[in-house]
């Protein structure tokens, strides 16, 4: 049987959702019998491949780089899963939204810096005016809220998706869990 191509992408998030994914522990080995991880911060592949079956996205869309990345991911993914509150709601990264980019940079790069405060280099990705959830930029097929979503929930959702079914994760996770 052909293996399902799975990718995981890390945008603006704390990596906690990836950690939770790893918390599926030995079950991941079982999963790998049906699944091939074709792109992920967990593996060493530099470019996002084509024809990916399932992509898990952790993190919100916060920079112009995130926008480019997520659009490419969407274009090459059949089922896009927003994994965790940052991807689903904006969560902590979006807490800067009421204050605006300027105040955020000011705070992070000047106020809270003791030595040599510096404006971030122009080569760094540029912050968007507002941090937004993934589905505000591209179509998302399935949402798994949680901060992070429990490993069991991720595992269940993934096994269902791998079997070509839409999982029902009601009561298995919640915002902030």
């Amino acid at each position: 049987m052909k293996k399902i191509k799975l990718a995981t992408v890390w945008l603006d998030g704390c990596s906690g959702c990836h950690m939770s994914f790893l918390d599926t522990d030995e079950r991941i080995l079982g999963l790998l019998e049906h699944v091939e991880i074709v792109y992920s911060p967990l593996v060493d592949i530099k470019t996002f491949p084509e024809n990916v079956d399932i992509t898990l996205i952790e993190g919100s869309v916060s920079t112009n780089e995130d926008v480019v990345k997520i659009k490419k991911v969407r274009a090459h993914t059949k089922t896009l899963v927003a994994l965790g509150d940052c991807a689903v709601t904006g969560n902590v990264p979006a807490m800067r939204n009421p204050f605006g980019v300027e105040a955020t940079i000011d705070r992070a790069y000047f106020h809270l810096v003791q030595h040599n405060p510096l404006t971030p280099s122009e080569y760094l990705p540029r912050l968007l005016d507002k941090v937004v959830p993934v589905h505000d930029v591209v179509k998302v097929d399935f949402h798994v809220p949680g901060c992070p979503p429990p490993a069991d929930t991720i595992y269940y959702a993934l096994t269902e998706l791998v079997r070509g079914r839409m999982p029902d994760i009601k009561l298995m996770t919640r915002f902030g869990k």
């Binding site: 869309v61 926008v67 968007l128 507002k130 937004v132 505000d136 930029v137 591209v138 179509k139």
Partner: peptide, 11 residues
Amino acid sequence: HEVLAAEGVAK
């Protein structure tokens, strides 16, 4: 566009 970025994202 299928889904257009929210304000500020498109710019």
